[in-house]
Every structure is written in C-alpha cells, then in structure tokens.
C-alpha cells in the first residue's frame, strides 16, 4: 500500500467514526435533504399508489418541503426491501409503505425479517378485499359460493392476483374460515400474477375472483362482472362501490382490512420519528388527502405510532392463527 492510499484509508476511517458519533444528533433543520420513499413493489400497484399519494399530499399541502422521490425496490413480496432496510439501520431518510404482506412474508418463511425489524410510523388507510363473479354466474351471494365449497371444495375455482399464501388468497380463506369451512387447504386457489384475473373471470375460466375494491370498478359499472361482497364492516365509498354488500350483511361475521402504513428503518432516530408522526398527523386532516381517499375508494384508518404498534401485535396473532390452520406457518 502506498503512503497516499494509506492516508486516504485513514481519512475515510476517521470520517466514518465521526459520522457514527453524530448520527443521533438531530440536524438543525431536519429534513434538509431528499427523502427516499420506497414502494416495495412495481410502479402502479397498491403500495406504489399509496406512497406516491402520500408524497403528493405532503408536497401539495407544503407540510414537507424536501423532495420525496419514490423508488420501486421490488422482489420477495416486499422482502427485498425489508432486507435493504436492515442495511440502513438508524437512517433518518428512508420511509417505506407496507401492508399485511409485511407480516405474511415472515409467517410463510419468505423473509427472515418481520415488522419487528422496522420502525412503524403510522397507519394511514384501509382497503378491503372484494369478491367478484362474472355477469352470468350462478352465484348471487357470497353464501352460495361458500355453501358450494362446503359441499364440494374442488367445485369452485377461486382466482386472485397474488401468489398462493399471500393477500388475495388469505382474504378469501379468512372469510371461508369465518363461515365455518374446515378444510381450508382444499379450497382451489389459482394465482394470476400477470394481472389477467379479470379476463379469466369474464371468460369463465374461474368462478370467483378475489381482489380489491378499486381494480374492477370499471367492469362492475359496465355490468360485465358483479361484486358479491367486501370484507369491510360497513358499506364504503361512493357511486357503484357503495352498492357492494358487506359480509356481515350476508350473515358472515368477518372483517378483514388490508391496512397500509408507513415504516422507517430499524432504530430510526427519535427526531425523525417525531417529525414524520407529526407530519402524517397533519396530512390526514388536509382536504387534499381527503379528496385522494375518496378518489381511490380508500377508507381513512389513521393510527399514530403507539396504537399502530399495538395493532400490529394484535393482527400478527390473528394471521399466525390462520397460517397455522392452513398449514403454511414457518416457525
């Protein structure tokens, strides 16, 4: 090693020590540089839409003045980004959006990390599962579907947009379990990860499609598909969405919320956590945010950090139970 490179190496070492020593101290004007907002999935999906809307509302309402560009760090059902967050322990400039799959990926063994390896900031919104059939389907209510499954589990083909053991699949099983169906593993779920679920439903290749509330709105409006029910506790939204019946109305006592919230990296410094809790609390009260919620058919579900943490512990127990029952729990 030449003397020059030794000097450089020493300087680097010194600088990194200095960096570590100052890391916890709040910069006077935090945030003073661009934030990294992350959607752990591809552009255009649910996570992506949520975090982009948050960035838009925060900027439009001038709550946050630094740029908040969105990065799509995809892969592993969100696990890739979760692993990346572990390398950013203690950083104050990284915020990701997550939803129940954050808990699923730990339970089904996709990721060795879980929600405990993040800093939850706030829960923001809830979306719900919705089940659709094509216009000519013989099923008129969710009960008819579930009765048919009870009689012969293989006779009803359920399609969904996410992989087996993830969102769309679990939502349906949640409902089936509440209805008293015992052998959840026998329910036939077919994953269409390329987003072709709606055409498969209209073409009669599957009987029921498990999806979210907004995606099939256009097809319900045109009468090509019908919505048999949603997993919210009461009717939501406006226009055609308000006609979607709930499970409870049909005598199935179940509610499943696809909540979405924001998470910092593990050990996010306190000044940053406080800043963002405060900013998000302000944001959810603004008109811009309320307008976005209405447009996207989202339900407000704001929850500040302490309650959100307790909520995560609670739902984690529920999810664990259902994963155990289906037999895909990885301990």
């Amino acid at each position: 090693m030449t003397r020059f490179s030794k000097t450089i190496a020493a300087a680097c070492l010194l600088l990194s020590c200095a960096g570590a020593a100052f890391a916890q101290k709040a910069p006077a004007n935090y945030p003073n540089k661009p934030m990294e907002f992350v959607a752990p999935s591809g552009a255009g999906g649910g996570w992506d839409t949520t975090i982009r809307m948050v960035a838009k509302a925060l900027a439009d309402e001038k709550i946050v003045s630094v740029p908040m560009p969105v990065t799509n760090r995809t892969g592993g059902g969100g696990g890739i980004n979760l692993a990346y967050m572990q390398t950013k322990k203690g950083a104050d400039d990284l915020i990701s959006v997550y939803s129940p799959p954050l808990l699923f990926i730990k339970l089904n063994g996709t990721s060795k990390f879980g929600y405990k390896d993040t800093t939850p900031l706030a829960r923001l919104i809830a979306d719900y599962g919705a089940f659709y059939v094509s216009k000519n389907s013989k099923y008129k209510t969710m009960k008819e579907v579930l009765d048919a499954i009870k009689a012969n589990p293989g006779s009803v083909k359920i399609g969904g947009g996410s992989a087996a053991g993830s969102m769309d699949h679990i939502v349906f099983l949640y409902v089936a379990k509440a209805y008293g169906i015992k052998d959840l593993r026998k329910i036939q779920y077919i994953a269409f990860q390329d987003g072709t679920g709606p055409t498969q439903l209209m073409g009669g290749f599957i009987d029921v499609l498990s999806s979210d509330i907004a995606s099939l709105r256009g097809l319900v409006e045109s009468g090509d598909v019908r919505c048999l029910g949603i997993t919210a506790s009461q009717r939501i939204g406006t226009g055609i969405v308000a006609t979607y019946p709930t499970m409870k109305e049909q005598g199935i006592d179940v509610e499943f919320s696809n909540w979405r919230g924001l998470f910092g990296p593990p050990e996010m410094p306190e000044y940053a956590v406080n800043y963002w809790r405060d900013a998000l609390a302000k944001m959810v009260k603004t008109e811009t945010w309320k307008k976005i919620m209405a447009e996207q058919s989202w339900t407000p579900a704001y929850m500040d950090q302490p309650e959100f943490k307790a909520f995560l512990d609670k739902v984690n127990e529920e999810y664990t139970e259902i994963f155990e029952e289906i037999g895909i729990l990885v301990k």
């Binding site: 591809g42 255009g44 390329d194 709105r217």
Partner: peptide, 14 residues
C-alpha cells in the same frame, strides 16, 4: 378492460 397487457401498461393503468 382495465387489465394490463404488459409490464408497461400495468404502470399506465396504475
């Protein structure tokens, strides 16, 4: 149909 034909149209749909 509101169904993506490719990765690019999936983003346009979003």
């Amino acid at each position: 149909l509101g169904v993506p034909g490719s990765g690019t149209t999936a983003i346009m749909l979003g």
